[in-house]
Amino acid sequence: MSNLRTWLAFALILGFVLLAVFAQFIAPFDPFRGGADALLAPGAKNYLLGTDHLGRDILSELIFGARVSLAVGISAALSASILGIVVGSLAGFFGGWVDGALMRVSEFFQTLPRFVLALVIVAFFGGGVLKVIIVLAILSWPQIARLVRAQILSLRESTFVEAARLSGMNGIQIIAREILPNALAPVIVTGSLDIASAILLEASLSFFGLGDANLISWGGMLNVAQPYLRQAWWMAVFPGIAISLVVLAFNILGDALNDALNPRLQETA
């Protein structure tokens, strides 16, 4: 059961990635070209999911929109993870005032209301995919930093690390071979959940019109759908479904990774 769920999630993510990469070959229409066929219902005139107020094909927009969502989600989670691992490792290994200072900084970022800060930053410095990624990374790293730090603090005292010292390993070898592999599993899990929340936050920003106006994104599609909700439900429903599916898929993936990376749940090799 959970295996099937995992495969479905994995297939879904793979599908979205393929759509994003090969968008120009897959999309039936040019998503930027409108025309006279405005606000057509799904199925009419070969428009499988209908058209928007400018006559653009919703399906093609969704396919191109996957690019923005996935790119933003993955790069934001990746940069947040790297920043978090570096800061968390420094805090965990060095302890003392380094630890204290870094943890106070991370607490500061954690106390900030995520969405409001994102709004403020984007409103001040303007939209743009890169800025959105940076904002998301800045908001997400403290959680990972604290996770890594806690892992390292407890692993540093563990008996198997003492045993590694007795085996003749030096500090760097112990960190690389014994501590980090054990510390990274929860980070990978959290990272994949961060992808989901970054996609959601990007969609929310675009929904409020703070995304990149020159790019098609799912959140942006929701934004323009607002005035037409009563005439053209398909303008809002399909991007909404896309967002839900991809967020759900990354959450399930995170769950599955958590199980897969736990050696206690692995099959005998």
Binding site: F160, A163, A164, G168, Q173, R177, N182, A269
Partner: peptide, 20 residues
């Protein structure tokens, strides 16, 4: 607790052979 949970036990025995 004295064996790395992510490491096959053979590797734990190999470590002192490699390093010590």
């Amino acid at each position: 607790a004295s064996l790395n949970p992510r490491r096959r036990v053979g590797e734990s025995v190999i470590a002192p052979l490699l390093f010590n």
